[in-house]
């Protein structure tokens, strides 16, 4: 029956999104480990594997578009497929940022670090947690968990501001740190952006579950 195969396609889509989420979560994790351990090989791996994320993103996108065109889904099916389409894009962007971070690691990974890295790995950890909680919320239809996931963005933003201030001071004190400081600042910025995309995941997953459109974005990260 047509509707049965529709259900099968929906569960394939669900699995593909979970797969996408796992790849992205891993990419963030590996990028952060590569940064802290100055592991060039691992950084190289993240850059290479981003192609898999891009391919999966394309596949998910085509699947969503053909489901929309051929099945003309309504109500919860419509919300599920549009959410898949939206968070697919957010996840792919997060993957790109993990790749960008790794590219920076490839540039600075052979020189001594100008400071011990604490806040940056913590930001990466929180970002992963946001992805993980959101994917669980996605599968379990758990609105509260999606909301909780979005709340970690506050802390990411706080850490971003700390890092910003700290590196600015360091650069003012010691001009020889400027180049690496700027690179680290980029990494902080990328992690902060990852947090924003992870917040979008929460918004769309909540829309999928209840139909509400919430604005969860935390504007405190804007540096003035």
């Amino acid at each position: 029956m047509v509707r049965e195969s529709f259900q099968e396609q929906l569960s394939k889509l669900r699995n593909d999104i979970l797969q996408m989420g796992n790849l992205v979560e891993n990419a963030i994790d590996m990028a952060a480990v590569a940064l802290v351990n100055q592991d060039l090989e691992l950084a190289e791996k993240v850059v290479m594997e981003d192609d898999n994320i891009d391919r999966l993103q394309m596949a998910i996108e085509s699947m969503c578009l053909s489901l929309l065109a051929l099945q003309q889904p309504m109500a919860r099916d419509l919300r599920f497929i549009s959410t898949a389409l939206k968070i697919n894009t957010d996840l792919e962007r997060m993957g790109d940022y993990a790749r960008n971070i790794s590219k920076i690691v490839l540039k600075i990974g052979s020189e001594p670090l100008i400071k011990p890295l604490v806040d940056l790995p913590r930001m990466a950890e929180l970002a992963q947690q946001m992805v993980r909680e959101n994917l669980t919320a996605f599968v379990k239809q758990d609105r509260d968990l999606a909301l909780q996931a979005a709340m970690h963005d506050r802390e990411i933003n706080k850490l971003y501001k700390n890092t910003f201030t700290e590196l600015a001071e360091l650069m003012a004190r010691d001009a020889s740190t400027i180049k690496q400081s700027i690179y680290l600042l980029f990494i902080a910025r990328y992690l902060e952006r990852i947090g924003d995309h992870a917040t979008n995941l929460s918004e769309w997953i909540i829309y999928m579950i209840t139909g509400e459109r919430l604005e969860l974005g935390d504007m405190s990260s804007v540096v003035r």
């Binding site: 309504m74 109500a75 919860r76 139909g211």
Partner: peptide, 11 residues
């Protein structure tokens, strides 16, 4: 009704 109906039987 077609994006987010309130009642499960409708959905």
């Amino acid at each position: 009704i077609f994006t987010a109906p309130r009642i499960k039987r409708t959905e």
